[in-house]
């Protein structure tokens, strides 16, 4: 029989998991780009990869302390944003999308190549960088929490840090978007020539937005690797598309949308794939001849379909104001 309680418990884990927090933060960065400024960034995976490798390489190769590694990652992502932005932010929106998706792939290929294996670990990636972060943990060893949220001191520490960062980022974004700065970037989303005619340096604001959302993505990339290892295959274009799904689920031009979108995405994904896997094992899908491997693949098919349906039928997301649609033009 299908153990529904177990499925619910597993889904519950995702509610506060650091992965959910990382995706929420990356989606918030994308909300700043896409939802508020109208920048079609398809390279958020690249920003996350920079966070992951920036942190990992500074720690493993250069033995930087945690704060140093974090700064290296953020610095690298600012440079990356500048490289992306300088040639494209003056051009039509499609160009940014193509250049960002290409740049993210370039990064992934560079991190994957055998040539740089000594530093990047090639296709195997990196691990063993978590010591510094674990050493900062003030929580004594032991078991904490209850039910599906039972965890050790490291996991608790990681969740506290991850979600604190998400909350701070939300507050920052919220304050920015209700300020005159936010008014300018939202104006740029609507019509950048009009904003230019009002004496605003549009290029400069777009660059600021690209950097800010990119830094959010980079920090998300660091949170993402703390419960796992760095594997270059994780930073493929699909990651960016998942973040778009999350963003559109919650609402592109909202602050809380990305967070709630990420929670719903991961809880649902876990529940659905848990259900399909267990139902398959229980023989529910024997009629259509589904194997266990196929059961694992259904979730990706579902994500694709959900993304399409969202854009077509509820483009403003769950939290979005029907009227304030970032992309309905």
């Amino acid at each position: 029989m299908v153990d529904f309680w177990q499925i619910i418990q597993n889904a519950g884990v995702e509610l506060i998991s650091p992965t959910t927090a990382a995706y929420a933060l990356a989606a918030l960065g994308l909300a700043i780009h896409f939802g508020f400024t109208g920048l079609v960034n398809f390279g958020q995976a690249g920003f996350m990869a920079i966070g992951a490798y920036g942190y990992g390489i500074s720690t493993l190769t250069f033995h930087f302390p945690v704060w140093g590694a974090v700064l290296v990652g953020i610095g690298a992502s600012i440079v990356f944003a500048l490289i992306l932005g300088v040639p494209t932010l003056r051009l039509r929106a499609d160009y940014l999308s193509i250049v960002t998706i290409a740049a993210a792939e370039i990064l992934r290929l560079i991190f994957t190549t055998n040539t740089l294996e000594a530093v990047t670990g090639s296709a195997d990636g990196l691990s063993g960088y978590k010591g510094g972060f674990a050493d900062l943990n003030p929580i004594p060893d032991g078991t904490y929490g209850f039910g599906p949220w039972t965890m050790n001191a490291y996991d608790l520490w990681l969740r506290i840090v991850a979600w604190t960062i998400v909350i701070i980022a939300c507050l920052l974004a919220w304050q920015l978007m209700r300020s005159p700065w936010g008014r300018v970037v939202k104006g740029i989303r609507e019509d950048e020539d009009a904003v230019r005619a009002l004496g605003k340096n549009v290029y400069f604001y777009k660059m600021q937005s690209l950097i800010l959302g990119g830094v959010f993505g980079t920090i998300a990339g660091m949170i993402f690797i703390l419960p796992r290892a760095i594997v270059p295959a994780n930073y493929a274009t699909t990651l960016t598309f998942f973040i778009y799904t999350i963003l559109l689920l919650g609402g592109a031009a909202t602050i809380l949308g990305p967070v709630v979108g990420s929670i719903i995405f991961w809880v649902l994904l876990s529940a659905v794939s848990g259900f399909v896997a267990r139902a398959q094992a229980a023989g529910w899908f024997d009629l259509i001849g589904m194997s266990s491997v196929q059961a694992g693949q259904t979730r990706f098919i579902l994500v694709g379909i959900v993304l399409m349906l969202l854009v077509i039928f509820r483009p403003q997301g769950i939290f979005g104001n029907k009227k304030e649609l970032a992309f309905v033009k």
Binding site: P180, W181, R183, K186, G187, E190, V195, K200, K323, A326
Partner: peptide, 20 residues
Amino acid sequence: LSLLTVLDNMKLGAKGQKGE
């Protein structure tokens, strides 16, 4: 700027805003 309020449209026109 369609998805800004009329008032926000106006405010955007002002020069020398510190909060920008």
